[in-house]
Nucleic acid binder design. Sequence first.
RNA 1: GUCGCGUUCGUCUAGGGGUCUAGGACACCGCCCUUUCACGGCGGUAACACGGGUUCAAAUCCCGUACGCGAUACCA
Length: 499
Amino acid sequence: MSIRVRFAPSPTGYLHLGAARAALFNYLYARQKGGKFLLRIEDTDLERSTDESTRSILDGLKWLELEYDEQIVFQSENADKHRAAALKLLNEGKAYRDFTPKAERAEGNIKDAIAEKARASQGEKNMRDNPFRDLSREESEGRAEAGEPFAIRLKVGERGTTSFDDAVFGLQERDYSEIEDLVLLRSDGHPLYNLAVVCDDIEMQITDVIRGQDHLTNTHKQILIYDALVATKPRFAHLPLILAPGGKKLSKRIHGEIVSLTTYRDAGFIAAAFRNFLALMGWSPKTEQEIMNLPELIAAFSLENINRSSAIFNFDANNPKRWTDDKALWMNAEYIRTMPLEELLPLVKAELKSAKLWREEYEDDDQAWFEKTVDLIRSRFFTLKDFSSQGRAFFSEDFDFDETALKKNLWKEPQLKMWMPELADKLETVEQFDHDEVQQAVSEFAEANGVKVGLIANAARAMITGQAVGASMFEIMSHLGKERVTKRLRSQIPFSFAG
RNA sequence: GUCGCGUUCGUCUAGGGGUCUAGGACACCGCCCUUUCACGGCGGUAACACGGGUUCAAAUCCCGUACGCGAUACCA
């Protein structure tokens, strides 16, 4: 039987990093096995689900290049089937009507309220003590026909255990006494999560359920539903969670946009790099190779090599340089400087476009110049954003001067204010404005003034690029051309706000 | 509370009885290269949560403790 897996997010927000990784693992597994990777939007919570969220999920998957097979399944469209399944179980006596009035939902933190309730009823709680569990069929139907509202609960056996062999966490067992008679259908007829998931997974013929560890205990409930429905159970693989620094939960409320996949796209990450980084969170190829492209990831992936312990996504909200995980940033830089130039160019183009720095000539008369520029500056950049910020002087006459560059390379020597225009005059006389000739001119200039070449070169760098760092100055000068270089060297603007 | 799961450098991880004076990567520090900064090269700091046991031998197996996480809903 061929492998069929699914990614089943609920559209109640943006695509969370943990969810994105779950999607990735499902995708890798499906592709490796020659199976299908399906997408199901679990939008049964009508109050929280939004189309915008669905769009953001789709955008995220598209960005990571995780193409799904077949049609998207919207869980809400299957509600009738879910209801039918619950009714079937009711008719078969495997479920029962619970006429207990629906409890008011507690205010504030729901999780805390649940835990508190559980603590309070500790010791006296018998999962089978529902008075409606053994109501006679006649009475149950009678009350239902009289219009009394009821929920449908699964009738969990008095004695027994559920068990499954998780591909990641190993053998899992749970005693029936620890599983309540879970609600299948709300009193308003709305099917609940565990029922919906099982029904849909059966219908979609899912063979392997790969999802977050937060569903590990849900799985026992779902197994009970599979059994009641007399359906074949899929294999389960639960993924360790991705946590925030300090081992806390990575949440939108506390950590903000850092947990959203689209943040990384918008921050100038290369999809392949982020995908690579994500793959290494909780999974290891067991080799020392870390930079892996998609085919390599597909070939190396295995459920068995997924870790059981949660991984921490490291970042420091108070440090702009460490706004996200160091390793993710490093990996992105690694991709930027080593990926084939032709693959990088369109990404840089998109970035320049969004920064309003793009010029059509870059794909026409100036194409060679553009390509060389990108190649010249890419090795020092961490994200695509750097092309329009640090690299701005290459694409526009209107660029800012980095304060460090000015302080360190320009203002420390008062003479430079005079020397820079003089250097421009000197360069004006260079016939062949190439690397060697420029270097010679600058060297001669430095010597004539009795200073090191470095002093002049670095001052010129600040004048010409606004930056303290960059490629070889002579390379940059010859690349930018005599006209732009001399003009910038004659500008007195960088000196005007000194002190 | 109960149940489940976890715990190797700051972080991602390798290692699953002897080859571990615990390997790699990021980050950090130093040196080399260099007009700057990166890259690259070389080197360094840095970890088996704790306590018992089993064994000739434990990071590795067992038990306990601590801590963390998850679940415990007419949410998904």
